[in-house]
Simulated scan of single mutants.
Amino acid sequence: MHSVFSRINNVSALLSSCMMALLAAIALSTLAFNADPKGDLAIASIKVYPGTARRYARTKQDLAFVDFNITADLTPLFNWNTKQLFLYLEAEYINTQGVKNDVVIWDRIVRRKEDASINVAGKNKYNFREHSASFKNVPPANYSLKYNVMPYVGYLTYGEIAKTAEPVAFPPSQPRV
């Protein structure tokens, strides 16, 4: 009555449905997981220098160099379903035209719980430039340390670990020597 192929099809459909139900249950179980990582962020100094927009362009733009200190304990974010963490430092400011900018200036990927204790004194990894050519008259920026938990199965979760207590002002542009 039923061919071998239709029976194989029925069995594989049942196994696929069971697998999807199991993965959905795993994904929903991670929603109940609540972690509260602790950290501290301090901006040591900001220096602004004139520069060019691109390698061969003649457009002048200010470049900001941010020195920061980060200490964070990310071990509460690791559980059986955590594949890796994406940790990043973000600068948030409003330029002179009133446009809100969120700029990632540093990041790190943490893959193991043993590496989840972060203590970094560094400077921005990526170019931090203002597209309106100058940081002059730009209001102070807020800096925050944020994370993204990437699970094996389930939803990506985002959060904030630390934030500067007060906005940090951009100093006047210094000539390069």
Score class of each variant (00 low, 15 high):
P175V: 04
Y158V: 06
S29Q: 13
R129Y: 11
A57T: 10
F65D: 05
I8M: 14
A13M: 06
C18H: 01
G154F: 15
A64N: 07
Y126D: 06
Y49H: 06
V149W: 02
N127I: 11
E160S: 14
H131D: 12
A13C: 06
E130K: 05
A35K: 05
K60I: 04
L22N: 08
F135D: 10
T59E: 11
W80I: 08
E160A: 15
T71Q: 06
V138A: 12
I105T: 08
A42L: 11
I70S: 01
G51E: 00
I161P: 00
I26A: 15
D67Q: 10
A53W: 10
A25P: 00
V48N: 02
R54K: 05
M20Q: 10
S173H: 00
V153M: 14
A169R: 07
N79W: 02
M20E: 11
Y56M: 08
F33A: 10
A13W: 06
F33D: 02
R58G: 05
E92V: 11
S29D: 13
L77R: 01
I105C: 10
M150D: 11
L85N: 00
T164H: 07
P76L: 14
A13K: 09
K123Y: 13
W80C: 05
N127V: 14
K125Q: 15
V149C: 04
S29F: 12
Y158C: 04
